[in-house]
Amino acid sequence: MSSPFDINGGACVAMVGKDCVAIACDLRLGMQALTVSNNFPKLFNFGPSTFLGLTGLATDVSTVSDLFRYKVNMYRLREERNIAPQTLANLVSSSLYEKRFGPFFVSPVVAGVNYTTGKPFICGFDSIGCIDFAKDFIVSGTASEQLFGTCEGLWEPDMSPDDLFETISQALLSAVDRDALSGWGAQVYIIEKDKVTKRLLKGRQD
């Protein structure tokens, strides 16, 4: 329980639908069993349809999100175009591996729709940048076991954006209710080719 990954708590999940992806996170920030904040989003935007979710040690969540904001801004200035989710995934992977022997204690998740191909893309990483390309869903955080159970039970292929929203929301809310370190509300993004919908979920406040 003294693992750096379990001190602050938090959960994140991404799912693929038909021509759309969804990414969601909880809002809790804690210090062990004590809840410090119920407004700590773990999702970060890096382009019109590219998102990064970060769970783990809160100080590293802030540091890593700031680091990638800088790196993605530099990419956009040099290339004069937005970063694709696949490119962000490789940037995340190589950046994390640079810290191979003193890693950031984060479990990142990338979700987005590629703006040239229109194809949905999700992937997850371990703390040193090994990429997990998944066709269905990616989970991370202290509620990852619970999320594996709910996602494996509720997910089905080729869901519409509305169905995908319902599925990812139910999967996340049910999972965090069985994890003492996650919860206190949630944030959900539904990403389509040229539309992003952000929704806030109340959830259980305990």
Partner: peptide, 18 residues
């Protein structure tokens, strides 16, 4: 696998969060 199954049951048997 209780931690995987239990939240699924909360949702589908007791209709939690629905």
């Amino acid at each position: 696998a209780a931690s995987l199954i239990m939240p699924f049951l909360d949702n589908q048997v007791n209709f939690k969060n629905q």
